[in-house]
Computed example of a mutant assay.
Amino acid sequence: MSTIDLTGESFEKTILENEIVLVDFWASWCGPCRQFAPTFEAASESNADVVFGKVDTEAEQQLAAAASIRSIPTLMVFKKGNLVFNEAGALPPQALDSLIEQVKALDVEKAIAEAKAAQESQDD
């Protein structure tokens, strides 16, 4: 599956209706963004079970602001509608492949329950 362009109108629906979604926030004038694009595209071709979306921060300024994008490229990964990774910077191919495998293996419900329990113990 190749990458899809995400907009303010399609972003939330895409995140909520797919198991795993990787989102690349980029701009055409950004050198590191252009360098990362082939890596992101190649990963999309080899992971048909994952949705790869791109957000052009120039065309989608409100969406970029809502996502608190301060630096590009920024990669966000969602699993079952939950943000599980958010980092600025271009990843090399091996790191992106490793991240995708880790997200596939992640039990997001367990992780959320553990985080909630840890927060509750801190609040006591």
Rank of each mutant, 00 (worst) to 15 (best):
V84F: 02
V84Q: 02
V84D: 09
F85S: 05
N86M: 07
N86V: 06
N86S: 12
E87Q: 15
E87A: 12
A88N: 05
A88R: 03
G89E: 10
G89M: 08
A90K: 12
L91Y: 13
P92M: 08
P92R: 06
P93D: 05
P93L: 04
Q94C: 05
Q94L: 15
Q94I: 08
A95K: 15
A95F: 10
L96P: 01
L96N: 05
L96S: 01
D97I: 03
D97R: 11
S98D: 14
L99W: 04
L99N: 09
L99D: 01
I100C: 07
I100M: 00
E101L: 15
E101H: 11
Q102P: 12
Q102C: 03
Q102R: 14
K104V: 06
K104P: 02
K104S: 06
A105W: 09
L106K: 13
L106W: 11
L106P: 07
L106T: 09
D107P: 12
D107R: 04
D107C: 02
D107I: 07
V108H: 05
V108I: 07
E109T: 10
K110M: 13
K110A: 15
A111K: 06
A111P: 00
A111H: 04
I112L: 15
A113E: 14
A113K: 14
A113N: 14
E114H: 13
E114Q: 15
A115L: 13
A115P: 08
K116M: 04
K116Q: 01
K116R: 10
K116A: 06
A117F: 01
A117M: 05
A118K: 07
A118F: 06
Q119T: 01
E120T: 03
S121L: 13
S121P: 03
S121W: 08
